[in-house]
Design a protein around this nucleic acid. Structure first.
Length: 269
DNA sequence: GTTGAGCGTT
């Protein structure tokens, strides 16, 4: 009874699928079963989960044996608070095979894909399925401006596209400062001589856009400063924005010509 | 340990 969806779809021909949205990521089929089973005969409950993390995606599919029971469950469980979260119960609009369904019931199901299955490559189907899912999720992104600040999980594969907005964080500079220092130190080790007499090193910097298209490029509109590490650290450092560069470098580097006061670096403490 | 639109599994 508790093993829903572990053996694949049992029989969706005579069942009505309900889509449960806004459920907690910790809610399992076992938790939804007693809830939905009270209003009707639940034949199957399936909760799509992530392939990588294996956690729930936040919605589940509950299949009823009869439409009237499903309708009742929708009316009764829709808006109900489950696990501290208000869930949304409604009839599924699409079937497991992306088929159009009506009132949770599949009206357009594959009759006998046996013949068509050979013509169509099943392998591509899987690829398309995975890709489609990811594409959908990233496309559905509405507004992550309010919670993307703390978002740093492994599934942010599609959320970090706008994480540049938080470049004003002190921690960010601190962290970047350290990395930048090491990177800059190595880079500067050989380009230091050129740096002294060639302030135009910024132009030949691999970080920046080597293409002079910045003069008139359509891309300039969408990314005027999309690379904070490309010019931000440099500007910040020389602009005096950085409180104490030595703070991130307890050892101190006297070779760093960037320090206007060699004695400071030498004495350090 | 974590978030929050949206339609599915061997």
């Amino acid at each position: 009874m508790s093993h829903f969806g572990r053996s694949g779809p049992p029989d969706i021909t005579d069942t009505y699928s309900l889509l449960v949205l806004n459920i907690t990521f910790r809610t399992t089929a076992d938790d939804l079963f007693p809830l939905f089973d009270k209003y009707g005969k639940v034949v199957d409950i399936f909760i799509p989960r992530d392939r990588r993390t294996g956690e729930s995606r936040g919605f589940a599919f509950v299949r009823y044996k009869y439409a009237d029971e499903a309708q009742k469950a929708v009316d009764r469980l829709d808006g109900r608070v489950v696990d501290g979260r208000e869930i949304t119960v409604q009839f599924a609009k699409y079937g497991p095979n992306a088929e159009r369904i009506h009132k949770g019931r599949i009206i357009e199901t594959s009759p006998k894909p046996k013949y068509r299955s050979r013509s169509r490559s099943p392998r591509r189907r899987y690829r398309d399925y995975y890709r489609d899912r990811d594409y959908r999720r990233r496309s559905r992104s509405r507004s992550y401006d309010r919670y993307e600040r703390d978002r740093h999980r492994g599934r942010d594969r599609d959320y970090r596209r706008r994480s540049r907005s938080r470049s004003a964080s002190p921690d960010y500079y601190k962290s970047r400062g350290k990395d930048r220092y090491d990177d800059d130190h190595l880079s500067r080790s050989r380009s230091r001589s050129v740096d002294s007499r060639s302030p135009v090193r910024r132009s030949l910097s691999p970080r920046r856009s080597p293409s002079p298209q910045r003069s008139a490029s359509p891309q300039r509109s969408i990314s005027p400063r999309r690379s904070p590490r490309g010019e931000s650290p440099e500007s910040r450092s020389r602009d005096g924005r950085s409180p104490t560069p030595r703070s991130v470098s307890p050892r101190g580097q006297p070779k760093d010509s960037r320090s206007p006061s060699p004695q400071n670096s030498n004495g350090d403490e």
